[in-house]
Design a protein around this nucleic acid. Structure first.
Lengths: 118, 118
DNA sequence: CGAACCTTGACACGACCGTGGTAAGGTTTG
DNA sequence: CAAACCTTACCACGGTCGTGTCAAGGTTCG
């Protein structure tokens, strides 16, 4: 049975075993299972757990934030919609009346919503 | 004094005035102020508030999620670090020993952390 | 076999999110 | 001037996040 058990993985990564289960439920890192259902952490998972820890600490993120980033990276629709909203900043080009520009922005938003290209 | 006051903006966007202040504190939409400090919502802000509402509803997001997306869009370091973590999936090429691949991945992670290009 | 693990599920708890309300005071307007 | 707004600053409350612990039962191993 190769791979570390959850408590061993917890020790070498700095997470608690409780948090390893939580991280798995959040969809971030899911180790394979032994025949009897034990979690088995391989080197990849261990490394990923350590870098996750560093990422969250260095940028003051929450697990939720990382979960959301993961969701965006896998859902092109979502990603495009968020990007569309962020890009519709209140910076309109010179010489364009506000009402025209607004309609343009709105149509852009809808175009981006329709086009599911990441 | 052109621009809608907070209650008028609330009525036409579907948010409550309470939430408009909250959204502003989250850094998402900050209307300009009158000389005496009243919030004045222009057409751009109103449109943005409506699309924000739609975005959150359609994709079941939280304001936090959108705030995080905004943060990523403005912090190239953060964005690169998150991307680096997401891309380090446990899919290593064939024929590469796990240890070598792990070191490679780790170095890639550090390279990406260093290069602050969105 | 028995100790020391593992599993899932539950209760708990502080902290923060989303949201409403209220209070004390300034501004706008009929 | 008085009504009806606006401001910030608090209190409150249910919900979720992050985390620990405990219970009941299965697995591994010396």
């Amino acid at each position: 049975m190769d791979g570390l058990t959850i408590h061993e993985a917890a020790e070498t990564t700095g997470w608690s075993s409780r948090m390893l289960r939580y991280i798995e439920r959040e969809g971030l890192i899911a180790p394979r299972r032994s025949a009897s259902g034990y979690r088995l952490y391989g080197p990849e998972e261990l490394q990923r757990l350590r870098t996750l820890r560093a990422l969250i600490a260095e940028h003051e993120l929450s697990l939720n934030d990382v979960g959301f980033a993961l969701r965006m990276s896998r859902d092109a629709d979502l990603s495009a919609a968020v990007r569309a909203w962020l890009e519709a900043r209140p910076r309109r080009p010179e010489g364009v009346p506000a009402s025209d520009w607004l309609r343009f922005e709105q149509e852009k938003h809808e175009r981006l919503l329709g086009a599911a290209t990441l």
